[in-house]
Write a protein that binds this DNA or RNA. Structure first.
Lengths: 194, 194, 194, 194
DNA sequence: CGCTAATCGAGACGGTACGTCTTGTCTTTTG
DNA sequence: CAAAAGACAAGACGTACCGTCTCGATTAGCG
């Protein structure tokens, strides 16, 4: 039974230094080589100060990503769903290939193993998916998407290829790739019956 | 300058014991908790015998997956592409949720960090993708897929959602899920112009 | 450039447990079979705690011997040098045939190879020799030893046979052996000129 | 139950190459760093060829020392025991400080631990001691040594300081050191009663 | 404004696994 | 078909981090 610390006395400066140091280290040396010890050293902080407030390095970096997301604009709605999806997926793709991409990749990796990390990560993912589904629902109401399309499936058809390419194939895709994916997706694979 | 060992003198029995032990351990205790030391102990083998032939535990398990794939049937061609894709994706999904899934998940995780592992993993992935694209090419020639569809994109639209659901959402999907995904994909999202 | 630890924060309890465990192991299984790993396990201590403070198992056991010596009475001075030498050499002989003898033997062995150990060992040896020489100097001043005797040589004549018998001949000598050696030594080998 | 090999089929050339290689390695890199593997490599011989005929590297080097001793002149007898002892101890001292000294030192070290080696080493030592005692016996008969001197003790008084200085103090002693030791030994430490 | 209790930086601690090294035996290939 | 070459099982080596713990020294919040 460990006593939990008093958040009022928490040193906000340390918190920011830790998040910053963790992110920088992760970008510079990679997620795996980032150690709690290293984060503490770079942040000029004792190891215990990290363990007092976070259960693991993944939790630290997850908080970094949450802060980052909080500072990010939401899904737009221009009226044209295809335009909006291109904008959104392009934005996601830019994130994945930026510095934060290395962190996010590390978190996804950790989530495969660590249940605590997994639930935090999943929360972020589901929020993005919910946003996407909401935009699709609007489009469906407006007749831009067939009425019989299952939106849960549709949203996975959109994000699936994006993550597949990034996580499993490690290729830097051209920006217009997602546009083509979306066009193909909207048109379908089957030939139109004559 | 480390001398490389002579493969002709390799003990095939040890090799198999190591692959088997690695796979079993990975299933039982998880990829992360699987250690080279543990594999050696379970296989009744010296640690050096592992390090002599493989650079890491990931390489061992990669070889296990390669052997597994070599013993696996290829893509069928019944004439109906949708039927074949359902069969294939269902088979993949079964693999992912089987014991080997835990190993494959671990390898995908490792590939995010370890370049050597990454190239081996990517080779397996690309082979599966190539097989898929080949089947789609046949279907396109037979008029079951529109002539203007980019098959590279099509194949990613197929496998993307599958891996997205498995890796990022950790849900066990019903078997018919992939069938619905494929139907939606063939039909497209856009309403058919009246 | 390895940072050296702060001795003020050292855990004295661990230090003692390590010295004790090392000594016991050495006695039970022999110096060669005593491993740092074994010492750590028996002392209930992490390996790193040993490596933090000592460079090798020899250094640990050397410290044990130093502690032991510090707790040992000095050369007596009863006025009669022969009596005192018999007392001292008997005490040394008892040490050599006691448990500590196994440790000391191991250290002497290690000192033949390992320069760092050698200098620590030599320090202990020279201290004993200096003590002996000091007692002889007093005896020489008192006329119990001829004025022209080189005391450096005399002290080596005293300890030399003792170590020769113990190290090279591995025989357990009777306690009175040293008394006879000393008598012979004082009387000389040559017949007294008539 | 290991079958012992047939000595008639033994390759004398390999035997010599192994002894030579072992001695050279020992001199060049030290006894501890000399490995059976290294000896085999340098002698152009398989490891098993060494293990077939010798139980350990110590046994190989012991055989080298035995061969060396067989090729060495015996104790002289000029009629003056002090002269002869000076000659003999000087010769020993030269051996100890020569290349062979490193080998001999290694064997003495090994003998502290390894019983098999110990008995071989002890045999060599005892032979030298017996030779010395025999010369002293002659001297005693000739009246050059007091009749009541215990020759077992006398011989240890002679070799003891020599080995003590060499093994425990690691100093290179001047050649005349032993002459002075012997003079002191013959004269005794006690002042001649007036 | 001072007291006091918690947080802070620092780092030693008991552990686990790493990847390397060496030992003596066993096995394969070669001359 | 014997010997060289070297793969093998075993296990200690010294290192890197883990997550916990114990220090004094601030420092924040209550009295």
């Amino acid at each position: 039974m460990t006593r939990q610390p008093d958040p009022r006395r928490r040193n906000e400066q340390s918190r920011r230094a830790i998040l910053q140091a963790a992110a920088e280290l992760c970008v510079q040396v990679g997620f795996a080589a980032t150690t709690v010890e290293g984060i503490a050293a770079r942040a000029g902080v004792g190891k215990q100060t990290i363990y007092r407030w976070w259960p693991s390095k993944a939790a630290v970096l997850l908080e970094y990503m949450q802060d980052l997301r909080a500072a990010t604009a939401d899904f737009l709605d221009t009226g044209d769903v295809l335009t909006d999806l291109v904008a959104q997926t392009t934005a996601v793709q830019r994130l994945l290939t930026s510095d934060a991409g290395a962190i996010w990749r590390g978190l996804l990796v950790t989530a495969q193993t660590d249940d605590a990390a997994a639930s935090g990560v999943r929360e972020l993912i589901e929020r993005a998916i919910d946003d996407g589904r909401a935009r699709l629902a609007t489009a469906q109401r407006d007749g831009q998407i067939r009425a019989d399309v299952d939106l849960d499936i549709a949203v996975e058809l959109i994000f699936g290829p994006l993550y597949h390419a990034w996580l499993l194939r490690a290729r830097t895709l051209p920006e217009q790739h997602m546009a083509e994916v979306l066009r193909t997706l909207f048109a379908g694979l089957a030939p139109t019956p004559a």
